[in-house]
Amino acid sequence: MATTETTVLQFSHSSNTLSAKVHPLVIFNICDCYVRRPDQADRVIGTLLGSVLPDGTVDIRNSYAVPHNEFSDQVALDIDYHHNMLSSHQKVNPKEVIVGWYSTGTGVTGGSALIHEFYSREVANPIHLTVDTGFKNGEGTIKAYISVNLSLGDRQLAAQFQEIPLDLRMVEAERLGFDILKTTSIDKLPNDLEGMEASMERLLALIDDIYKYVDNVVEGHVEADNTIGRFLADTVASLPKLSPAAFDKLMNDNVQDHLLLLYLSSITRTQLSLAEKLNTAAQIL
């Protein structure tokens, strides 16, 4: 047999994992665990939960910390804890399975290979997420790796960590508003109208910017950019073309509908307060 005689060094690259998506909750969770880590520990590690999307992207949606001890060349992971927590999480959401593990700090260390091997037994092709909570490069680097086995024939030689593209799913954080998440303390949640005002102000500022840009182009201060021009034209064209009369009618109808509802709700409220007075004030004898 020719294949057994020629020993081939090969990457067993079975994964078609293209990228990973991380939800902000995971980052928050990791940061919180890091802040609450035990005295002597200099990093925290934990399990990542989520699912693999049909296109191969790994969707990381949840996480929990796992206590561990690290000595010079060995790592002791609390496996019982890991399994308990896993079963608890699965009771709530059975769709979330292990997709990998995380650790704080930059890059991959020696102990990482051991932990990675452990997680490889739990799930095929785990993802290793590192979050630099120490801000070593002056920025909070978040990176995802997968491990590629370097094997000689049937014997495993080493594991190579390969970085994979990471997509931070910030939509949920945006929904909440960065203002709330960015500051260390905020006294009051914004109510609907305040939020509306902020959004409108932003919209107006954007429109102003566009006006300025267009004016500058028309007057020849700035060179015209075709892509921007086309984009603007498309945006304007996306507004439905309505005759002023039709638009006015639409607008007035809508306003009247809302006014009617407002009227209804205020009349209901008045009725309520009236009924309450009658109900409790009536002296029965």
């Binding site: 902000p24 980052i27 928050f28 940061c31 919180d32 890091y34 802040v35 909570t133 801000f135 920025e139 909070g140 931070l168 910030m170 954080a173 945006e174 960065f178 709330i180 998440l181 960015k182 500051t183 260390t184 303390s185 905020i186 006294d187 009051k188 949640l189």
Partner: peptide
């Protein structure tokens, strides 16, 4: 009851970094 939101300094740093 009025709600106050607080974040640890670490999270605040990360969010500032990650804000698009």
């Amino acid at each position: 009851i009025p709600i106050k939101v607080s974040n640890s300094a670490l999270i605040s740093a990360f969010m500032t970094e990650l804000e698009s």
